[in-house]
Design a protein around this nucleic acid. Structure first.
Lengths: 237, 237
DNA sequence: TGACGTTTGAAATGTTTGTTTGGAACCCAG
DNA sequence: CTGGGTTCCAAACAAACATTTCAAACGTCA
């Protein structure tokens, strides 16, 4: 038996890293099902078999691409929310601060070349509308804690909002956020082709936060209270 | 030469229709690249070759699925905006009415079984984040007029909003809208599993409109006015 | 240096993709 | 009944796909 878990010798980490970066870039602007291992290995300039050797399968590669960035990202989100709640000391946190804690860590997701941050954001946005089943399997696992935490904070900050209403508004919030990160391809075509650079993530966030805060704080539609008899939790599924 | 364009004899329209419905349903919750012709023909219970016979290719099938619903949908949107502008007589139209004209026709998109309407909405939402190139080719063609019209109306209704700011807010608006229509799969997992039925498109719209209106009307971030020198309408495109 | 574990390379595996084919079944006009 | 146009079907097609295989190359330790 060899010395277990020994530090790789030659270009092994280098190869795995190149695969990683190439995969992230291609997934970003092509999607997951569409991107072939051949395209990835060609871009990374490594052998085709290298992916299955280093990662085991294409699905495992996708999972690792996410784990590497989604963990720190959501960790930063919750840490920032922690600080806000600690500073507030039991009182509700300001909504704009909550939204900022949700949106802005997306910028400083890692201390890497900074390009990786923006790249991963579009990758994540794309994943949220990806049909693949393995996406539905482990992506919610990453997000559940974040959603629970932010839902609680928002529920405190917006006390006159029913639980159902809050669910919808968080739904819209995540939608606008995900789309803003992923949808540059589709939208820049039918808005105006020559606006402020879409790559400038900071600009997106600075405009997105007020938009979302206003939407979250908006008065409930018609104050219809409970609009009929409250459907009383249908099939729990 | 046969009698051109004769009414089909047996189950031809019936077959084409079944392919159409099956394709729409599968595209909706699987995406385009991911859905195979074999899956479509299996669901439609027709022969594999039927797709290429009736539509010519998979891409043509996708295009027809869109043309059939996107045309009437955007037509209804613009017609509704027409009525609003005629009633306003030169004055700006109320923002909530504009947003309603954009969002609500999605409900009454056709006089079909009504289920088709909701189905197509999710299909459209998914298309907006689809990587395929043929999507970028003909989808903007359908949307360009709508965007231009609504941008003009919103620009009048929100006079103290710079063009760049308006672009971003429309961006976010389309994002929340598209995601709300497509993202039921991803979101219902990490919000709460047992909320009001996501299939109830009317409920979505009634909650989405106030959210978007509030976002669109929100004060500009720092009132940085025209942040540099006003880019003065570059290439009109 | 020599042996062993790790990594890479080129080729082949079997599966799945969209598309094409040739003939049978069908309908209707002549 | 007969021919021609249309529709359908089972099968086959080539291309692209993820994955596996096996030998060669490499680095490290004895």
């Amino acid at each position: 038996m060899p010395s277990l878990h020994r530090a790789p010798t030659k270009g092994s980490l280098e190869t795995k890293e190149r695969i990683f970066d190439a995969a992230e870039a291609l997934f970003m602007d092509q999607g997951f099902s569409t991107t072939s291992l051949r395209a990835i290995t060609a871009k990374a300039k490594v052998n085709l078999a290298a992916v299955n050797y280093h990662f085991g399968s294409k699905e495992a590669l996708i999972r690792e691409v996410f784990d590497r960035s989604l963990g720190p990202l959501n960790g930063a989100r919750m840490a920032q929310l922690d600080r806000l709640e600690a500073a507030a000391g039991g009182n509700p946190v300001a909504i704009d601060k909550i939204v900022e804690a949700l949106v802005s860590p997306a910028l400083h997701v890692s201390h890497d070349p900074l390009k990786r941050g923006a790249a991963f954001l579009r990758l994540l946005g794309r994943a949220l509308s990806e049909p693949a089943e393995y996406m539905r399997a482990f992506l919610p696992a990453h997000y559940r804690d974040v959603v629970v935490r932010f839902r609680r904070a928002l529920s405190l900050a917006l006390p006159n909002l029913s639980e159902a209403e809050l669910t919808w508004r968080m739904h819209f919030t995540f939608g606008a956020m995900a789309y803003s990160m992923a949808g540059t391809d589709a939208v820049e075509l039918f808005t105006t082709p020559d606006d402020a650079g879409v790559d400038d993530a900071e600009a997106i966030v600075q405009r997105l936060i007020p938009f979302l805060v206003a939407g979250l704080k908006s008065p409930t539609p018609k104050s219809r209270a409970t609009r009929s008899v409250e459907p009383s939790a249908r099939k729990v599924a």
